[in-house]
Amino acid sequence: MQIESALLIGVLFGCATYLILQNSFVKILFGFVVLTNAANLLVLTMSGNPGGKYAPIVGDAAGPLVDPLPQALILTAIVIGFGVTAYLVLLLYRIFLDQNTTNAAELYEDQDTSEHT
């Protein structure tokens, strides 16, 4: 399981990086969505294989248990990612409305920030 998860996470991170480096807003947006999910999956894999682990408090558990803490962490991270993604969507939409473009390269092409007031 570990090897497969590691591969999957690697592929997801690779895809996310590729997408974020694109010019189109939509691709950048999807890149961030994939990136958050890849990170969540990484944390999930960190909890490891349930084999040979038992709940610390209950004592004699019926069977092996997965560590619940990373799952709680992921839930929190998902909630945060949800909010930030919603914000990102609207920010990109607003930039599109303002600048009439969805191309990041075009948007930041010839900006001179040294004298803006």
């Binding site: 990170a39 969540n40 990484l42 944390v43 960190m46 909890s47 803490l69 962490l73 991270a77 930030v84």
Partner: peptide
């Protein structure tokens, strides 16, 4: 933030 989450996972 994503890297931070990964770091937290690694630390765990």
């Amino acid at each position: 933030s994503t890297l931070f989450l990964c770091a937290a996972g690694l630390a765990y």
